[in-house]
Design a protein around this nucleic acid. Structure first.
Lengths: 197, 197
DNA sequence: GTCTATATGATGATAGAC
DNA sequence: GTCTATCATCATATAGAC
């Protein structure tokens, strides 16, 4: 048997990884199946042995991106507020905006997903809810009150800042936007600010 | 002469209005020139008498959307904080998210624009800067300090909230997201909160 | 499972009549 | 300026060999 189960699973993973990278970088509609498969080192005919449509790939790519994202990977290592704000800084970094590491699908695909079918939107929504819940629990564990609404506040700010920053051609404006959000969120989470509330 | 200058200008306006509506609702790549022209009551051959490419239309549609948006149209009527928060509530309303009135291009086109050429991104950036400056000046006139960074905070939150809300299929989640952002921003702008700062 | 080849359809853009 | 007709290209998805 020339193709093992593991081989298939590896191929599938390469497709998903390529899809996340390309969809985030250029948008779903601008990326053809041929291009995704090329980046995954296969030809486009092989695609349909793994996914039933391009649309299905999108829904699964969103979940894949979420699993690879910094927030999800680090979520169980957060033991103090310092660590939490470190993740915020990473999210609001130029490296993230320029997609050097694993991109957060919430910020990189927002508008795109709004135009898609129910399966894709549900995938996005589940990712959003999972991150919201996880962040809320972390904030509670760190001793903060109103943690769910606080998490919502932080997450919308993160997504808004990064998605806008990505559109800006002016590097100074981009930098100042990111810095400003970092500063605001640090202040929001500073122990003193919380105690005085 | 069968076609007057005014007639051309009206046709152009109908095209731009249709483009804003369709691009925001379905995304740039999913909308064909044929469909835009159909909604503007013309055939697709006439398009190139007004714009040199679909891409140019996009850049101009962003500016057109900005001019029609609530914030820009109402920006000179703001005389007190109550009026300011009324606009925030309108921005964060279900009506806006469901695109019943004029959509804000900043929230409806973020991710889309990030994948486009320089001309389109510059159009978005100029709109962003204009809204930022305008909002900052309003906040200063209303007696608030750190108004530029405050405006940036408000704007990223507005855009983040609306763009995410638009992707959510769950109406309850959508509502609670919008409500939470409204409440936070009210609190941020409440006179007492400012005085105690 | 992966390849090459192909069916089928839609798109952006142009040409020429009126 | 607007129409109809057309070109050239590229997309998704399928068929069949290996």
């Amino acid at each position: 048997m020339p193709y093992t189960l593991e081989h298939k699973s590896q191929s599938r993973d390469r497709i998903l990884t390529a899809a996340v990278d390309l969809f985030c970088r250029f948008g779903f509609d601008q990326i053809s199946i041929t291009r995704v498969m090329k980046q995954a080192n296969m030809t486009h005919g092989a695609f349909y042995a793994h996914f039933k449509s391009k649309s299905e790939l999108y829904a699964l790519a969103i979940r894949h991106a979420a699993m690879q994202s910094l927030w999800v990977k680090e979520q169980h290592n957060i033991s103090n507020i310092g660590h939490f704000t470190t993740l915020i800084d990473a999210y609001l970094s130029l490296a993230h905006v320029n997609q050097l590491g694993a991109p957060c699908p919430l910020a990189f695909l927002v508008t795109d997903v709004a135009h898609c079918n129910d399966a894709v939107r549900e995938s996005y929504q589940q990712t959003f809810q999972a991150m919201l819940t996880s962040m809320s629990e972390q904030l509670t564990a760190l001793g903060l009150t109103h943690s769910y609404s606080l998490a919502q506040q932080i997450l919308t700010r993160l997504v808004g800042t990064v998605s806008i920053a990505r559109t800006l051609a002016d590097k100074d404006l981009q930098q100042s936007l990111l810095e400003n959000s970092r500063r605001d969120l640090h202040q929001l989470l500073a122990p003193t600010a919380v105690l005085h509330k």
